[in-house]
Design a protein around this nucleic acid. Sequence first.
DNA 1: GTGAACTTTGACCAGACGGTTAACTCGCCG
DNA 2: CGGCGAGTTAACCGTCTGGTCAAAGTTCAC
Lengths: 226, 226
Amino acid sequence: MSVAEPPRAARTKRRTRIQQENEEKILDSALEAFSQHGFKGATLDAIAEGAGMSKPNLLYYFRRKEDIHAALMESLLEDWLEPLEALSAEGDALREIRDYLRRKLDMARERPRESRLFASEVMSGAPRIEDYLHGRLKTLVAEKVEVIRTWIADGKIRRVDPYHLIFAIWSTTQHYADFDVQIRIVMGVEGDGHIDDAARFLEDLFLKGLAPGRPGGEEDPQADFT
Amino acid sequence: MSVAEPPRAARTKRRTRIQQENEEKILDSALEAFSQHGFKGATLDAIAEGAGMSKPNLLYYFRRKEDIHAALMESLLEDWLEPLEALSAEGDALREIRDYLRRKLDMARERPRESRLFASEVMSGAPRIEDYLHGRLKTLVAEKVEVIRTWIADGKIRRVDPYHLIFAIWSTTQHYADFDVQIRIVMGVEGDGHIDDAARFLEDLFLKGLAPGRPGGEEDPQADFT
DNA sequence: GTGAACTTTGACCAGACGGTTAACTCGCCG
DNA sequence: CGGCGAGTTAACCGTCTGGTCAAAGTTCAC
């Protein structure tokens, strides 16, 4: 019996150069596949071909399809929280929100496949990340909701629902990754530049939309044309 | 040869009651499957089971998997344009935008599966709706972009990028359908009620964010803390 | 340079998958 | 109530899919 123990299991340090390289290739190819076709729709054959290796070889590094997806998710979810974590109660409210918008939009620009991977997982009912959603994500959001409530109480931003504010930031920014194809077609653009315009628009919209009335100013209950 | 011609082909009027019912059942089940797992990930077996019939029977009504998806898409894309089509150049700018927000949010509430179906199609590269995106959608958006530009020129709303305004409305509203699972978990809610809060928040955000400065007012170049 | 650990592969498997066929049953119009 | 077309199904087909296995090839520390 000369078969080596498949390696990923427990080692702290990546053992060999080849392993390092191949796992990278696999994860990159898998990211492409899963983000386009979802977990069920992506196939090991396609992932193996994209990684430039045979299917049994791929399965030497990851024993099951699930394991590849899990590895991808783990590294994704880590980074997913970061931008929101960085939202600081101490900073200036509007500036903090603007910076959060920028960080999220940068991620959509630089890592669109990860965004789509996440979206496709959630849209399929999030069966593989339930724990994460119920745990770390929910907790972190609740925490930042409190920060926003403080800003509201201090008159730093207008009185809005903090949950929906966060959702609005998530959705508007991730949209540029998840619906990339549609946006390019509708706008007729090719490169990256439209995302800079998006940044300007979104910062503008949110800052104007959230800024409190001037100190002595009217609370201006919006013209109520129902 | 006693096999009847599969019926869908060309008839103007649905022929039989049974056909009507079964096609409905199939499309409903297929909507569920495609919206969760995408085109590749959904299987005829699952769709047939969901529709309560055998696979050959299902294939009696729709010859190929693609045909089911196409039928679903056709009816979806029809309705998809409606809310934007209703955006009228003649109406009051802010009210029109608010109404558009409401219509989109109503669709997200009432037809979340359709929204996810569309999202999953776009995320997989939109191979089956390219024509639609390049054609009717692009044209309609261009048209409404002009409407918005007019409003800006007339000082009815602030100077913002019309394309990104439309994208922001799309993304914030569809988010409540596509990311429904995540939202429910993070907010810890069950029913429908949070969407009413979302409506309030979004109308508030967009109206405040778009309303022009008071006639004699400052143009207020946003505090530029870079 | 050698041997043990690491890597790769061809052949294979059982079940799922999209789809076909032929024959059977049912609904309904006259 | 007979018959014809509509509706249904069991059996089947070739291919794809996730995954296994044993054997062969490659690396690299000593």
